[in-house]
Design a protein around this nucleic acid. Structure first.
Length: 456
RNA sequence: GGCGGGUUGGCGGAGAGGUUACGCAGCGGAUUGCAAAUCCGUGUAGACCGGUUCGAUUCCGGUACCCGCCUCCA
């Protein structure tokens, strides 16, 4: 069996992955807050953990992996959007979830086995908070419930910080009802114009972190195998999840392996609205950048390194994919993926190494293995995508005419007519291949049939 | 200020204590009427300064620069 090694943020080392239960490998990934279209950066954890999901399914069997990714559908940004637009919160979240699944699907991401929404797990959150209060890890104050970081000695272990260090930074909100400035909110009161649920502490809504603890516990159990997300979530979100879950569940670890992907840059700069380089996945798709190309560009960079999105990379990815698809289309489904490629993925998701092996398969002309290997990583589904398929056109008349002209030219040594036809074909986006064996015309990606009208 | 990550050939981007990464581009060649496509060949790069070592780009320390988090923005 393939041995998977993963870099564990918690230990800062690459470790051999050993599932708690090989018959049910369990992974939780923090999903989006649904208030707007997903931007390109949001796609990175989706693709990274989709690759891991596919690898786990390949190694342990598709029925032996459980992947959970939540939707945060209660959040002050959503509330703000509703107030701003006059729309209902439910309308906004429903629409955004639909968009998200459509856009990520276009990038070849499989849907997780469970996609829980925070609002569907409020009772579980309330129960967990009650348990935390009962065990002395949380306290109610002025309608809020706060987690007491002093009650959990391992607080900060994941991100390598101590409570003292963080307080020294003195950047935390100092609310009067907090016992320790680092205490964070489990529950907060809602005014009448905000979404709220009845609770022992009055009408209110959950803090950000508790939903993941509650949903992970409900769907995956007190301890599970892998917890993932962007590196920006390492602190405070994941630190807080660990504190809540371990204290509420009485376990010493929430997840065995913590994995974090690095951030995204655009043309070397952080994507931001102020720099004018902010765009969504949908923007790219609408501009005609295929989802497979976006996925390939992401796979070019290891997940633990910052990834730079550039137009040049996208162009290179498209050219490579066209070549590979043309080869893979010659084979049928049913072959086995390259073990070398699988081993690259198993080595802490070395997707670039995986692509290198695909290059070797293409060079060797191994269409069947290339096809299966591309399918493994989600770059190819059942069929070659339409954008990469060869245009269905009949160029035989042009081909015949060019061949005839060439025959004549060979005799007369006057190639003027041949060159004229060739130039016209090339201008129309047709690749002209002439050899001793004859003439071959291949319509390229920029092929424009109208440019050939009237060519004689 | 605290914590964490990064710096590889023209570009992108890996692995490995000592043997060609790979891809793209470039260059040379084969091929072609000329091309295109294809094939073959070609690149001793590793931010800087020390240390360990028979030997380091790969380990350790320091310097510079860049980035992220610490402010419920992935």
């Amino acid at each position: 069996m393939t041995t998977i090694k993963l870099h564990n943020t918690k230990t800062r080392r690459k470790e051999v992955f050993t599932p708690l239960n090989p018959d049910d490998v369990r992974m939780y990934v923090c999903g989006p807050t649904v208030y707007d279209r997903a931007h390109l950066g949001n796609a990175r954890p989706v693709i990274v953990f989709d690759v891991l999901y596919r690898l786990l399914r390949h190694v342990y069997g598709a029925d032996h992996v459980t992947y959970v990714r939540n939707f945060t559908d209660v959040d002050d940004k959503i509330n703000a959007k509703a107030a701003e637009t006059g729309r209902t919160i439910g309308g906004i979240t429903e629409e955004t979830i639909r968009w998200y699944l459509d856009d990520m699907g276009a990038l070849g991401a499989l849907e997780p086995d469970h996609m829980p929404r925070a609002t569907e797990f409020i009772p579980q959150m309330v129960t967990m908070i009650e348990d935390l209060i009962a065990s002395g890890h949380a306290y109610a104050a002025e309608g809020h419930v706060l987690f007491a970081v002093d009650s959990y000695t391992r607080y900060g272990a994941l991100s390598g910080r101590t409570v003292e260090d963080m307080i020294a930074g003195a950047r935390v909100e100092v609310a009067p009802y907090k016992r320790n400035p680092m205490d964070f909110v489990l529950w907060k009161p809602s005014s009448d114009d905000l979404p709220g649920w009845d609770s022992p502490w009055g009408r209110g809504r959950p803090g950000w972190h508790i939903e993941c603890s509650a949903m992970a516990h409900e769907l995956l159990g007190a301890s599970f195998d892998i917890h993932g997300g962007g590196i920006d979530l390492q602190f405070p979100h994941h630190e807080n999840e660990i504190a809540q879950s371990c204290c509420a569940n009485g376990t010493d670890k929430m997840a065995n392996v913590w994995m974090h992907n690095e951030m995204l840059l655009v043309e070397g700069k952080k994507m931001s609205k102020s720099l004018g380089n902010f765009f969504t996945v949908r923007d790219l798709l609408d501009q005609g950048v295929p989802g497979e190309v976006i996925r390939y560009v992401f796979l070019m960079t290891h997940y633990r390194k910052p990834m730079d999105w550039t137009a040049e990379k996208a162009a290179q990815a498209e050219a490579t994919l066209r070549k590979w698809y043309a080869l893979a289309a010659q084979a049928q489904d049913g072959s086995v993926p390259s073990q070398t490629a699988v081993d690259a993925l198993a080595d802490d998701l070395n997707t670039h190494g995986f692509l290198s092996e695909c290059h070797q398969l293409a060079l060797a002309g191994d269409a069947a293995t290339l096809r299966a290997t591309l399918q493994l990583v989600g770059v190819l589904e059942t069929n070659v995508p339409a954008w990469a398929a060869a245009p269905v056109v009949d160029l035989s008349a042009h081909s015949y005419r060019l061949a005839a002209a060439r025959e004549t030219a060979m005799q007369t040594n006057d190639f003027a007519q041949v060159d004229r036809l060739k130039s016209a074909l090339i201008a129309a986006g047709v690749e002209v291949r002439m050899s001793k064996s004859g003439v071959e015309l291949v319509p390229g990606p920029e092929f424009d049939p109208s440019a050939l009208e009237g060519l004689e």
